[in-house]
């Protein structure tokens, strides 16, 4: 059903001078899907993500995000998406509660809605004791779980996650993925990049970008069958080692 498609791109391209960072990528993402966006360093992932978030204007091609046009309706796009990365986190010198209130305010949540939301968020994350602690004092894994929850405070249609679990311990990394599953169950589409290949296997579908182009797009299972391998790590290696480009 067409209405269930939340990301639709058609030959989306971005050039920087002679350099084609993202070359005619075409794909659809369904509502509530966990969509893995993989590729070697320099494959063009970041450029593509920036365009999808409405932060960078494409050179050519078309795309709609949550039904909004990527050229003309970038402000609407920003209202309907969430974003978090390994680097941009929360304000370290604000407390857990202050961060929630701050971002809730930015997203335009009403006072009542925000206080309900922050209650349930703190409950889900088991952070009752930590609510008045400075975010900077939390372990990385907790920060990332909090950052993710904050990025979906406004119940966006899509959340973009750029290597959200880099360096996080193995137990917390799995708790993080539990949060992703719960959000996807509520219908939030998860668009995620990762260097952990076991996490790639948790995705419903995966794209592999090589040299600015989409070289593969399928379920992890089908990709593994296609490349006769037991793990996504091998699939990734097979696809990416042919890359000519090594720039970030």
């Amino acid at each position: 059903m067409e209405t269930d498609i939340v990301i639709k791109t058609e030959k989306l391209t971005k050039r920087f001078g002679d350099f084609i960072a993202t070359n005619q990528i075409t794909f659809d993402v369904q509502a509530g899907e966990i969509f893995g966006f993989l590729g070697a360093n320099g494959a063009g992932k970041t450029t593509a993500m920036k365009m999808l978030c409405g932060l960078s204007t494409p050179t050519s091609g078309n795309a709609t995000i949550a039904g909004f046009d990527i050229y003309r309706e970038t402000e609407q796009i920003k209202k309907n998406i969430g974003y978090m990365s390994q680097k941009f986190s929360l304000y370290e010198d604000l407390t857990v509660l202050e961060n929630i209130n701050f971002f809730g305010g930015i997203y335009g949540l009403s006072k009542k809605r925000l206080s309900e939301k922050s209650e349930s968020l703190i409950e889900t994350l088991n952070m009752k004791e930590l609510r008045k602690k400075l975010v900077g004092s939390l372990p990385l894994g907790w920060k990332q779980k909090l950052a993710f929850s904050v990025s979906i405070l406004h119940e966006p249609k899509i959340v973009f996650l750029d290597e959200p679990t880099g360096g996080v311990d193995p137990v917390t990394r799995r708790q993080f993925w539990d949060l992703l599953y719960a959000a996807a169950d509520r219908g939030i589409t998860i668009f995620v990049t990762t260097h952990y290949m076991d996490e790639a296997e948790y995705c419903n579908r995966i794209t592999m970008m090589v040299d600015g182009e989409i070289k593969a797009l399928d379920t992890p299972k089908k990709l593994m069958q296609q490349y006769s391998s037991d793990s996504m790590d091998e699939v990734f290696y097979e696809l990416a080692r042919g890359a000519k480009r090594k720039a970030d």
């Binding site: 360093n41 290597e163 880099g166 360096g167 260097h195 990734f236 290696y237």
Partner: peptide, 13 residues
Amino acid sequence: DEPTTGVDTVSRK
């Protein structure tokens, strides 16, 4: 110290 953090599988190998 973490020479391979944030580096893709091919470069890590």
